[in-house]
Simulated assay, not measured.
Amino acid sequence: MFLSRIHLDPRCKEARRDLANPYQLHSTLCRAFSPPDTKCPKGEFMWRLEPETDAPGYPRILVQSRKLPDWNGITVKGWLAEVDAAIDLRERLKLESLKSGQKFRFRLRANPCVTRNGKRLGLLNKKDQEGWLERKGNQHGFSLPILTAFDYFESLEERIDVRISQEQILCGKQHTDNSIRIFSVLYDGMLSVEEPELFRNALQTGIGHGKVMGLGLLSLARA
């Protein structure tokens, strides 16, 4: 499992197009993992457009993949401004020796939602967004620190200690007449590993819906 960081050059017309259309950006990234005119294997990679740019102002994208990407496969001239050396996550994070109680800083852009009457609805309330992440933690083998908050009307209540920002609707187009709209937020915080095997699987497969739109990648740094 490898993590790469690439920098796009917004002076390139195709790069600007991809930055405005997450579905198209995913399609372009697929070229680094499959030959031309070949469908990219499902689950081969996940990605996230970071909110921060690099020093020269270029947008940064994290790409986590099963195998090393071949960036030469993206044949658009000027699309890539820079490519950082890939990191072997299994080695960097010692994934094979994870233990319950280990703590990591994390970032996750995700689609907190519920399904009602067969439709997926984004959760717009902060408390609901926190509850969604807490449930995903229980499902995927990690927990989040608890913060005791004071509410003027309801006295004390316990909530998870996580920063939620970057609320936005992501819009993409599969075809000219088939558009995708998905609600997303950015989570930043600390987590503790509870069940190592479940947690490793979450790192490999991602969390929640919208993978082709740049959602679901759980990235870690040692606490």
Rank of each mutant, 00 (worst) to 15 (best):
Lys119Leu: 04
Leu121Phe: 08
Leu62Thr: 10
Glu96His: 12
Lys119Cys: 00
Ser65Asn: 02
Lys94Arg: 10
Lys99Gln: 15
Pro69Asn: 02
Leu49Lys: 11
Arg120Ile: 13
Thr115Ile: 14
Gly118Ala: 05
Ala110Asn: 13
Leu121Tyr: 10
Leu121Arg: 12
Lys42His: 06
Lys119Ala: 03
Gly118Asp: 07
Asp84Gly: 09
Asp37Gly: 01
Phe106Lys: 02
Leu89Glu: 11
Asn117Lys: 13
Ala55Met: 04
Ser65Met: 03
Ile87Glu: 11
Arg90Lys: 10
Glu82Thr: 06
Thr53Cys: 07
Tyr58Arg: 08
Lys42Cys: 04
Gly122Leu: 09
Thr53Leu: 08
Arg120Lys: 15
Cys113Val: 07
Ser65Arg: 00
Glu91Leu: 07
Thr115Tyr: 02
Leu121Ser: 03
Arg109His: 08
Arg60Trp: 00
Glu130Thr: 08
Asp84Tyr: 05
Val83His: 11
Ser97Phe: 10
Arg107Thr: 12
Leu121Gln: 11
Thr115Phe: 04
Leu62Trp: 11
Lys39Ile: 00
Arg120Thr: 15
Lys126Arg: 15
Lys103Cys: 13
Leu49Met: 10
Leu98Thr: 03
Gly118Val: 07
Ile87Gln: 07
Asn111Gln: 13
Leu95Arg: 05
Gly57Ile: 01
Pro36Met: 01
Gly78Trp: 11
Ser65Cys: 03
Arg60Glu: 10
